[in-house]
Write a protein that binds this DNA or RNA. Structure first.
Lengths: 212, 212
DNA sequence: CTCTGTTAGTGATAAAATTAACAAGGTGTG
DNA sequence: CACACCTTGTTAATTTTATCACTAACAGAG
């Protein structure tokens, strides 16, 4: 893996897309793929695909293309899949449950070890086989149970507090679904899923079809 | 509103962020804001903020800044908020329910009129006050009940079929949560929320903190 | 074993997006 | 009501990102 210097986030955000395409190809029994064919499949230009992959090393071969299985493995390695990630979800409402069920069915590499909530009547119950614990115990729990990723699915009013506690507990990254921009996260990786922003963009394009 | 020529999607994706900040400012009773202050608040440079807003017209005033209430209204108008949007959700699993509950609590401008599913035992039931109908009746339903936005929360195997039916039914836009890239959508606006891609990006940054 | 066609890697080029700089025009105070 | 100070709108410069175009190299057929 080459990987010299900073890789732009535009490139990083395309890697999962490549991975997805390669999984499909592997499932359909395809052994090799050229940048040109991949381009047709996922829409990025062949040039861009070659350049993206080249940031990390020459995975392809002239006259042949890329080996699907190998390339998939390489991209997985670059992203850091392969090891296991423990997660906790703060907020056991519908969204928290949806993420919980998504994770458990998505991959064995990701595991939700606990849900957290402030609501008395939920604490102690289970959702999809995961126990809901008291939000007040979050930091203590995290210190006893090292956790890689904290997922925030609480209201925007409680999101910053959840973030602070997750950081105090020492998580390595935050996946935020609350419609705010978390503060004081320093160099901690934070990935946002802002549903309302996304919906608003969609509405813009619905109203301005000529802009597509 | 100026709005001449194509506006880059980078700009469009920042508008909801401005809107969110302006809502917060309005709620905190702030009447005016300069691009500089807004910059501190949301992280984009003041230059960028001024340039973004200028694509649509001069909403500010030299020596004063922008009027919070007015600017919020203008951005809302640009995005196309203000009118009501009917939505259907295809897939009434946990994610579908989560989106349903998100929408109903989020804004009066968006309304989920029906859920759809193939599972016999779910059809006819209600979730958060919304009836689950038979997926087989989707197209017919849409033709009788004009719908703006179709939300896809089914598995990736069923997503393309859901998309085809939504298009046949005449929706104006699609909000896709399935981990595939929908095909044959022509010029129909499609907004994707690829949770797995998002998670993979997060994992990359967790493993490459020096890249942040 | 040679020859043709294919395809990755790569440096150059073009396009797009962001940031900087500044003139013009309000604001608001004394 | 004049003057110092802001702050926008806008053009220019810079940086980043994507595409092009070409070379070297390998595959596979015959």
């Amino acid at each position: 893996m080459k990987q010299d210097g900073k890789i732009s986030s535009a490139v990083i955000r395309r890697l999962p897309r490549y991975l997805r395409a390669l999984e499909d190809l592997e499932n359909s029994g395809t052994e090799r793929i050229s940048s040109g064919e991949l381009s047709k499949l996922i829409g990025y230009t062949a040039s861009q695909i070659r350049q993206d992959l080249n940031h990390f090393g020459g995975f392809g071969q002239q006259g042949y293309g890329y080996n699907v299985k190998d390339l998939k493995a390489e991209i997985g390695k670059i992203l850091g899949l392969g090891k296991k990630y423990n997660m906790v979800i703060v907020g056991s409402g519908r969204l928290g449950q949806a993420i919980n069920s998504f994770i458990s069915s998505y991959s064995e590499n990701f595991r939700v070890t606990s849900l957290f909530d402030v609501k008395e009547d939920l604490i102690g119950k289970e959702k999809s086989g995961v126990l809901i614990r008291d939000f007040a115990d979050l930091e203590t729990y995290l210190k006893k149970n090292p956790t890689d990723i904290g997922v925030i699915t609480v209201t925007k009013e409680n999101a910053q507090n959840a973030c602070d506690k997750l950081m105090a507990g020492g998580v390595n990254g935050i996946w935020n679904f609350a419609p705010i921009d978390l503060e004081n996260t320093g160099s901690l990786p934070v990935e946002n899923v802002h549903l309302s922003d996304n919906l608003h963009s969609l509405v813009y394009y619905i109203n301005h079809p000529e802009q597509i």
